[in-house]
Computed example of a mutant assay.
Amino acid sequence: MAPAPSPPALETRDLTIRFGGHVAVDAVNCAFHPGTLTAIVGPNGAGKTTYFNLISGQLRPTDGQVLVRGEDVTGLTAAARTRRGLGRAFQLTNLFPGLTVRENIRLVVQSRRGAGMDLLSRAARRTDLVDEADAVLARMSLAGRRDDLAGALPHGDQRKLEVAMLAALEPDVFMFDEPTAGMSVDEVPTILDLIRRIKETTDKTVLLVEHKMDVVRQLADRIIVLHNGALVADGEPAEVIASPIVQEAYLGGAIEHA
C-alpha cells in the first residue's frame, strides 16, 4: 500500500480578492505539500503577486481562507504568519539599507532565535549569531561583501542578500516572487542553486513566481497557472507548459475556463 500523502503545509480555499468591480484573485483552491516546488505562472496581470500577497498577509481577502498546517491564518498579520513558518522574498529588495550585509543577516538570525532586535545590545557581539550569519553569506557568495552597507550593493547583490535573509529565517514555506528579476546572467545561478538546495530539503515547501520558463523547467515539480485571477491549469511541468491553455495565455489569446 502506498504511503498516505503528507498533509499540506499551506492551503488556500476559495481565496478571493476584489478591488471595486475587479476580481484580482478568483476563488483559488490549492494545496502545497512539503518537499515540492510549485511554480506559479501566467501572463502579466494574471494575479500571481496578488495571490502571494494574500498568502503572506500583505493583503486581506474579500472571501476565502489561508491555512498553514491546517490552521486558519486568514485573520493574522504578515508578521504572525512569519512566526508560523511562512517566509516571503519580494520582487523588490526589502533590506535594511543603512546596515551592513552581515548585520542584515544577523538581525534575521537574532529574531528567529528570539534574541531581541536591539542593534546595540550584546547580541551584536554574540559569536554564535555572527558565525551563523557568516555561514549564510558564504553559501550565497556574499562573504566578501559582509562589511558593505546593504544600500550600497549593486542590484544583483541586493537580490542575493534578500534571498539570504529568507534562508536565514529558516521558514517551513519559502515564497519567492521573481527572485532573479533584474539579475545578470552570471548572477542567476547562485540564486537557483540556493533554491535547489532548499527544494532538496524534503520538509520544506517552495512556491516560486517566475516569468522565465527556463528557470521554471529547471526547478519546478509542479506548475499552476493563473489567468485573470483564476486557477486554469495545475500539473506536471511538461504537461502544463505544452497545454493549449498555457500557450494561449503566454501568446495573449483568450482563455475559456474549463
Rank of each mutant, 00 (worst) to 15 (best):
Q58E: 14
V73D: 05
A249G: 07
V101C: 00
R145A: 11
F176D: 07
M213C: 04
A78W: 10
D193K: 10
A123S: 15
G229E: 09
A24W: 03
K48P: 10
A135H: 02
D72G: 11
G87S: 00
T77H: 10
D203E: 11
P179C: 14
D221Q: 06
V25G: 07
G114L: 01
E239L: 05
L194V: 03
V185R: 12
Q158Y: 13
G35M: 00
V215G: 06
R113D: 15
G45T: 02
L119R: 09
V232E: 07
I40V: 15
V25P: 06
G64L: 05
L86Q: 10
V101S: 02
T49N: 07
F174S: 02
S121D: 02
T100L: 13
Q110K: 03
V185D: 09
D203L: 01
H22V: 14
D118K: 09
A249V: 10
E170P: 08
E132R: 03
E200R: 15
V68C: 14
R13Y: 08
G64T: 01
G229V: 10
S121Q: 00
Y250D: 05
A133K: 01
I198M: 13
D157T: 01
L86H: 11
D221K: 02
D118M: 08
K48W: 05
R146T: 08
V232T: 12
L86E: 10
P61R: 01
V209K: 09
E187V: 09
R145N: 08
A133R: 01
Q65N: 09
G75C: 06
S121W: 01
V136G: 05
A124F: 15
L37T: 09
L231R: 15
L166S: 04
L119M: 06
P43L: 06
L251E: 04
A167K: 06
V173D: 06
A89T: 11
I245C: 06
L207A: 08
K160L: 12
G182P: 04
T36G: 13
I245D: 05
L10N: 02
L137F: 05
G98C: 12
D234I: 00
I105A: 00
S56E: 05
S184Q: 07
G70R: 02
V225F: 03
A258L: 09
D177N: 14
V25C: 05
L169V: 05
R145I: 08
L119H: 02
A46H: 11
P179W: 13
F32C: 07
G235W: 00
L120A: 04
V28N: 00
L54F: 11
L161P: 14
L95N: 03
Y51T: 10
I223R: 11
I223W: 12
G75E: 09
T16W: 00
L161I: 14
P237N: 12
T100R: 13
M213I: 13
